[in-house]
Amino acid sequence: MATMFLAMVVEEQADGSYTRTIRERTVDDLPAGEVLIRVLWSSLNYKDALSASGNKGVTRKYPHTPGIDAAGIVEDSRNDRFRPGDQVLVTSYDLGMNTAGGFGQYIRVPADWVVSLPAGLELRESMVLGTAGLTAAMSITALRAGIGPEQGEILVTGASGGVGSMAVSILARLGYEVCAASGKDTAYLLGLGAKSVVARAEVDDAGDRPLLKTRWAGVIDTVGGNILATAIRSTAHKGIVTCCGNVASPDLQLTVFPFILRGVTLVGIDSQNLPMEERAMIWQRLAHDWKPAKLGSMGREVSLAGLEGEIARILQGGQKGRIVVNLGQR
């Protein structure tokens, strides 16, 4: 008899609405793949909330189980790199988008998606990091290519969210002076290592000046829209700005002047398709030198059933830090 497990299943209804239920499935329901993993931990990301709400730009076909992050134990493998009992993690690629994801107690995926859990990380810790930690670390890697701690302030936008809070913590550990932009949670961000916290309004200039007074040596932007445009217009000569999100807006209204008069570099961050060699290297950093000092406390734990309220919260911009999902709970 096939192994039974619990999963969140999102279904499209006849009236165009979507429902989310926790139900039993079997491993025979899972897609083809080389590695079967018993999922112990997952996490909630903005993309998961979109998939769980019926966003066809993220997930094309329903019924579907979201969850772009998963960590657990290999149950079966048809690839020599992995054996039953190995501790592993999977983030991004197509997991949780159009492939049944980490909001189920089992996943089956291609071996090329699977990362062996690095020494220095526990499975739960890897999901506190998850795609958010990977994205933050990729952004910091791009920033460090040209900006050192001695060169000035680094702005992190959307700092209370998953990527933002990870970026603040890692940058602080690496000796950077971080200014966190957020509409809330000043004490939380200072506790992560931010030197200062500013309101969103201070980094959201509605004027039409092509250049603003320089303030930032570099920027890690997680929200897009006019906040990103303001950050670029405020970045100093030869500064680096990374971009990984569009929760504010996918539109970017700018002139070329920040780029041709100040030499600002804008770097797009795509964690979904990061090659495995670079991915494994970044996970090693996150397990050691770049591991956030307060990693354990940055993840608030919920069960599968507890995700319901958190999905609404993250869509409304109310998430603080990271939500980790304990797949051992109902």
Results as ranks from 00 to 15, higher is better:
Thr3His: 10
Ala7Cys: 13
Glu12Asn: 07
Gln13Ser: 07
Ala14Gln: 15
Asp15Ala: 06
Thr19Ala: 08
Arg20Val: 01
Arg23His: 08
Glu24Trp: 05
Arg25Val: 00
Asp29Trp: 06
Leu30His: 09
Pro31His: 11
Leu36Ile: 02
Ile37Ala: 03
Ser43Trp: 09
Leu44Gln: 03
Asn45Glu: 04
Asn45Thr: 03
Asn45Arg: 08
Tyr46Ala: 04
Asp48Cys: 11
Asp48Leu: 13
Leu50Glu: 09
Leu50Ala: 00
Ser51Ile: 02
Ala52Cys: 11
Ser53His: 04
Gly57Ile: 06
Val58Lys: 12
Tyr62Pro: 14
Pro66Lys: 13
Gly72Ser: 05
Arg81Met: 11
Phe82Ser: 00
Pro84Arg: 08
Leu89Ala: 01
Val90Trp: 13
Val90Lys: 09
Thr91Glu: 09
Thr91Trp: 12
Asp94His: 12
Asp94Ile: 07
Phe103Gln: 12
Gly104Ile: 05
Gly104Glu: 10
Tyr106Lys: 10
Ile107Val: 12
Arg108Gly: 02
Val109Trp: 09
Val115Cys: 13
Leu117Met: 14
Leu121Val: 01
Val128Tyr: 06
Leu129Asp: 06
Gly130Val: 11
Thr135Leu: 09
Met138Tyr: 03
Ile140Met: 10
Thr141Met: 10
Thr141Ala: 08
Ala142Phe: 02
Arg144Gly: 00
Ala145Arg: 15
Gly162Met: 11
Ser165Phe: 05
Ser169Val: 03
Arg173Glu: 10
Leu174Glu: 07
Tyr176Gln: 06
Glu177Lys: 15
Glu177Ser: 15
Cys179Arg: 15
Ala180His: 08
Ala181Tyr: 09
Ser182Tyr: 12
Thr186Ile: 11
Ala187Gln: 15
Lys195Thr: 05
Val197Glu: 10
Ala199His: 10
Val203Phe: 07
Asp204Arg: 14
Asp204Pro: 01
Pro210Val: 05
Leu211Glu: 10
Leu211Ala: 03
Leu212Arg: 14
Leu212Cys: 01
Thr214Asp: 11
Arg215Pro: 07
Gly218Ile: 07
Val219Gly: 08
Val223Arg: 14
Gly225Thr: 09
Asn226His: 11
Ile232Trp: 04
Ile232Thr: 01
Thr235Trp: 01
Cys243Trp: 14
Phe257His: 13
Phe259Ile: 12
Leu266Arg: 10
Asp270Asn: 15
Leu274Thr: 00
Met276His: 09
Met276Asp: 02
Glu277Tyr: 06
Glu278Thr: 04
Arg285Pro: 04
Trp290Val: 00
Ala293Leu: 15
Leu295Trp: 11
Met298Pro: 13
Val302Trp: 07
Ser303Leu: 11
Gly306His: 09
Gly309Met: 12
Glu310Lys: 15
Ile311Ala: 01
Ile314Phe: 02
Gly317Asn: 10
Lys320Gln: 14
Asn326His: 08
Gly328Trp: 09
Gln329Met: 12
Arg330Asn: 11
Arg330Glu: 06
